[in-house]
Design a protein around this nucleic acid. Structure first.
Lengths: 344, 344
DNA sequence: CTGTTAGCGCATTCAC
DNA sequence: GTGAATGCGCTAACAG
């Protein structure tokens, strides 16, 4: 007869330190000490306690522990805008990996890009006493992330910069990556390079636009407004915008795309009208290597963003009381240029 | 001067119910009642309490609450094999969505497909008193998931069936989907249809193989061992295996692939040698619609698996004490057949 | 080396 | 309607 079922009802009382103590003939305190591996316990009692733990199938109650400790729930919050985006799931994976090595777990939240949900989530995470949180902020409205509101819960921003608050941050080299990508197009001989981007409100989009322009200016290649479209949102709208651009009589011979979705839209457009326009884009494209056309991709390690964010966070979480408060740090993940489909 | 910093050190005592009570001139109990929206409180005291809450910036401590309640941490565990796989991040997204609507959060764990890590994780989740957990089991070794070990924590398996334990389960129609896909190839006129799969140990792989074979047998089309490869693991090995298969003198004219990675490997092989072999595959392929060749995909809604799993779980979590224990249920997510690239 | 006392913040009794 | 007492399970701080 099993002592518990899957009813979801309170199971028959799980054993506590007290039960273990009784069984081992010691005090609860001693059990606690053994459990935490404190050295000042005699080997013989330790053995007895461990035996009792085993026999009773005792398990430490992290909730009670957390309450007693006043802190250290052993949980880190991770708040992203959209888990369906592979970028964020890689980020989550990287963060989870680092957290795990420190015995910490991740509590996940997806905001759908809505600031209100983001605020609710972070608030809830504070209530749950997470030891710290990593947030991909949905917008520059970040007052709900200030130290006061978060009750001093350590915070690291990922992917987008702080705005009006101070916090450790991990960013991608959006500017440098875009500049390198566009520069390569120029080096490939293109003197007319268009830009396909999403609306300028987004930090990453704005940075990548700046990078594209910088590359052209540095190369002395014309920057023409007519070759810029910043209204694409997804594959479909990107395709339409690219078509529009490429069907002009003075169409550019190359196109730099600000995100992977946009690159795909442009790719479709190019295949559709057969102009052979050269394409470069930001963000890894899952299947870049099975696509037909040559493609230049500004790539980066999304896992690494998560790993770095987790490291920065844990750094603060584990900071010795008494250590002077460190100023906010910023970490920039580099990009690399990858060329696909040249040798087919 | 902010009352807190981001040092990671215990912040200056956050206000508790007691502080609020003192400020509102009532007892802690009354505060608690107001907070939980109990009706038996006079409007005037309620107003006073809420004012105090606001002034002090009070926030409920979920940890203390959870301890007191003995249950209901408000957390659901989600244990997957590999978050980097878009399939699982979609699953996570679906589960998170449903959990959120019930005021629950997800605690995430990635096992890398290792049973030991899976056991450690689930154990830890029990210690954290999660209200329930969704697990994508790494293998058929599932003794660490039995009701006793989990202390009765409600459990739902996703993607793979229980083995030696009893638990609610959400599966994909692997068999039916593969059969439908292979049947369509036959209907398209193919009488020689190969199979490219991963090693038979995996449940999904075995089921899909069965489905493929069933379709051919039902159609009276030959099932030849020489057209079967079940040793592919990733895009590279799949490509090699497919090449091998397609370079035979009696090569099949169509190939059914058991997973999206394998489909891509086969796709490469077909492009490489230009046989024009027809391809069908299980699992959505991210960019199926920008690929060149015609492609038949057995697709399904990965989010839906997560949603259903969360619903089954929450069903048990919220079960009224006294309700008879429900027997384990099984839910099968249907597949659909999608044809890509025919009209280009 | 080990035990005792006390209390983390909240909510369930049971009084009034 | 409201309050006082009590304890969830664990562990600091102090004895001994």
């Amino acid at each position: 007869m099993p002592q518990s079922d899957r009813s979801g009802r309170p199971r028959r009382s799980a054993p506590t330190v007290r039960d273990v103590a009784a069984r081992a003939g010691v005090s609860p305190m001693t059990v606690s000490r053994v459990l935490r591996g404190e050295p000042r316990v005699s080997p013989s009692t330790r053995t007895r306690v461990l035996a009792a733990v085993d026999e009773l199938g005792y398990r430490l109650d992290e909730v009670a522990r957390s309450l007693r400790l006043g802190r250290a729930s052993g949980l880190l919050g991770l708040v992203v805008t959209n888990l369906a985006n592979p970028f964020y799931s890689r980020l989550a994976l990287g963060a989870e990996e680092v957290a795990r090595h420190h015995g910490l777990r991740l509590v996940l939240g997806s905001t759908g890009g809505e600031v209100r949900r983001e605020a609710e989530l972070t608030d809830d995470l504070v209530s749950r006493r997470v030891d710290g949180m990593i947030v991909v902020p949905a917008a520059s409205e970040q007052t709900h992330l200030d130290a006061e509101t978060l009750r001093g819960t350590p915070l690291v921003l990922a992917s987008r910069p702080p705005s009006g608050i101070e916090a450790d941050t991990v960013l991608v080299d959006d500017f440098g990556g875009a500049r390198a990508g566009a520069a390569q197009l120029v080096r490939d001989g293109h003197t007319s390079v268009g830009f396909l981007g999403n609306p300028p409100g987004l930090f990453t989009g704005a940075e990548r636009f700046r990078g594209w322009r910088a590359a052209l200016e540095e190369a002395g290649v014309p920057v023409r407004d007519a070759w810029v479209r910043r209204d694409a949102r997804d594959i479909g709208t990107a395709q339409a915008a690219a078509l529009d651009l490429l069907e002009r009589s003075d169409a550019p011979t190359a196109l730099f795309c600000a995100t992977n979705r946009l690159t795909l839209g442009a790719y479709r457009a190019v295949r559709q009208i057969g102009t052979g326009t050269a394409l470069a884009g930001f963000d890894a494209v899952e299947l870049a290597d099975v696509l037909e056309g040559p493609l230049l991709i500004v790539s980066y390690d999304a896992d690494e963003i998560g790993r770095r964010a987790a490291r920065l966070l844990i750094d603060r979480v584990l900071a010795e009381p008494g250590t002077p408060v460190r100023p906010a740090r910023r970490s920039v993940v580099p990009t690399t240029l990858v060329r696909y489909g040249v040798t087919r």
